[in-house]
């Protein structure tokens, strides 16, 4: 059983062990990016290791971007946050995710998720009208960090 399968085990200890093992692999854990993002919704023993693995993961495989784009709209804030983070790390390879990210930026109820979406739009060099509009609106936010990140992404898109 590989780590991806172990992360989906019914046994919580097995899932935790898999997440911990992946957290020790650094960028080599990228193959399990999707499973690790989903594991952020698991209990503490699993999610803490999953987050640790994701921090060191670097960009995910290109073939995972479609599912990560879906996960970016997840109700679970930590799952959404990390899916968006991985999309942002993918740079222009995730260019096709910009509509979804713009939508999340406008509508998510979680400020941390909106902030990450604003950041990711800059990382993927978003340039669509919808994305620019969302960023311009976010740049007016009273939340200092959201406004700053949106402005930074707008500057990138104009560069």
């Amino acid at each position: 059983m590989n780590e991806q399968q172990r992360l989906q085990s019914r046994d919580g200890q097995e899932r935790a062990a898999a997440a911990e093992a992946l957290s020790q692999m650094g960028p080599d854990a990228a193959f399990a990016a999707i499973e690790l993002v989903k594991a952020c919704a698991d209990d503490e023993a699993v999610s803490q290791w999953a987050v640790s693995a994701l921090e060191e993961l670097g960009p995910p495989p290109v073939d995972s971007l479609g599912e990560l784009t879906t996960l970016a709209a997840a109700d679970h804030a930590v799952v959404a946050y990390w899916a968006i983070t991985l999309l942002g790390r993918s740079g222009e390879a995730a260019h096709s995710s910009q509509q979804q990210l713009a939508s999340i930026l406008c509508s998510s109820s979680e400020m941390s998720v909106r902030q990450r979406a604003a950041w990711a739009l800059g990382e993927i060099n978003a340039a669509s009208d919808v994305a620019i509009g969302a960023l311009e609106e976010a740049a007016k936010s009273p939340d200092a960090r959201l406004a700053r990140l949106a402005n930074a992404s707008l500057e990138k898109s104009r560069a």
Binding site: A16, E20, S23, E44, A45, Q48, W49, S52
Partner: peptide
């Protein structure tokens, strides 16, 4: 002697 140590996921597990 002063050190810095990131003890990755220092928690219950």
């Amino acid at each position: 002697l002063i050190a810095s140590f990131n003890i990755q996921v220092l928690g219950k597990s």
